[in-house]
Amino acid sequence: MTRTKSLGGLILPVALLFIAAHFTFTAVHGDYGLFQRVQIEADAARLEAQLAAISQDVARMELLTHRLSDAFLDLDLLDQQLRDVLGYVRADEIVLP
């Protein structure tokens, strides 16, 4: 009888220990755990840096678009675009292949 009582008294603490271990493991490694949070924060920082780079590109494009608009015509930029896109050269220039 003492052996049955001691075995029965051991089942509950072992079961509680396994349950606590499961919840601890889930809190660290689960979908909403600590490791996942660190990964999400790293992804957020990477995406914020990418957003800043894209915002700079958009601002540069807006400036170039404004410089080519009818209200503000930059002749140097127009000349550069003609050379790049259409391949124009002036009569006094030498073209090297």
Rank of each mutant, 00 (worst) to 15 (best):
residue 68 L to H: 14
residue 85 V to G: 02
residue 41 E to C: 05
residue 31 D to S: 12
residue 43 D to F: 03
residue 47 L to Q: 13
residue 50 Q to I: 12
residue 36 Q to G: 10
residue 14 V to F: 03
residue 70 D to H: 10
residue 42 A to H: 09
residue 40 I to L: 10
residue 15 A to W: 00
residue 45 A to M: 15
residue 30 G to V: 03
residue 62 E to I: 07
residue 34 L to R: 07
residue 95 V to F: 11
residue 41 E to F: 01
residue 97 P to I: 01
residue 9 G to A: 11
residue 25 F to C: 03
residue 74 D to W: 01
residue 26 T to Y: 01
residue 77 L to T: 15
residue 88 Y to D: 09
residue 83 R to S: 11
residue 70 D to R: 15
residue 26 T to Q: 10
residue 54 I to A: 09
residue 25 F to W: 06
residue 14 V to M: 07
residue 40 I to P: 09
residue 72 F to D: 15
residue 2 T to G: 10
residue 21 A to S: 10
residue 95 V to L: 14
residue 18 F to Q: 02
residue 82 L to W: 13
residue 13 P to W: 02
residue 38 V to H: 13
residue 79 D to E: 15
residue 36 Q to I: 00
residue 34 L to H: 15
residue 9 G to P: 00
residue 59 A to N: 09
residue 72 F to V: 12
residue 25 F to T: 05
residue 38 V to S: 10
residue 90 R to F: 14
residue 92 D to S: 12
residue 84 D to L: 08
residue 54 I to Y: 09
residue 63 L to I: 06
residue 32 Y to R: 11
residue 94 I to Y: 13
residue 72 F to C: 10
residue 48 E to V: 00
residue 15 A to H: 04
residue 79 D to S: 11
residue 54 I to W: 02
residue 18 F to A: 01
residue 64 L to G: 12
residue 57 D to C: 11
residue 45 A to Q: 13
residue 43 D to V: 02
residue 20 A to W: 03
residue 75 L to S: 04
residue 59 A to F: 04
residue 79 D to V: 04
residue 85 V to K: 14
residue 12 L to Y: 04
residue 47 L to E: 14
residue 88 Y to G: 05
residue 27 A to F: 07
residue 50 Q to Y: 12
residue 24 T to G: 11
residue 19 I to A: 00
residue 12 L to P: 01
residue 45 A to K: 13
residue 30 G to A: 05
residue 91 A to G: 04
residue 94 I to Q: 07
residue 73 L to A: 11
residue 38 V to D: 10
residue 15 A to S: 08
residue 43 D to N: 14
residue 90 R to G: 06
residue 45 A to D: 13
residue 8 G to N: 05
residue 66 H to E: 14
residue 77 L to M: 13
residue 68 L to G: 08
residue 6 S to Q: 02
residue 41 E to H: 05
residue 89 V to C: 15
residue 45 A to T: 14
residue 49 A to R: 05
residue 19 I to F: 00
residue 53 A to C: 09
residue 30 G to E: 04
residue 35 F to E: 15
residue 12 L to M: 14
residue 68 L to A: 11
residue 24 T to F: 00
residue 19 I to G: 01
residue 80 Q to R: 11
residue 15 A to F: 02
residue 4 T to S: 02
residue 84 D to V: 12
residue 90 R to C: 07
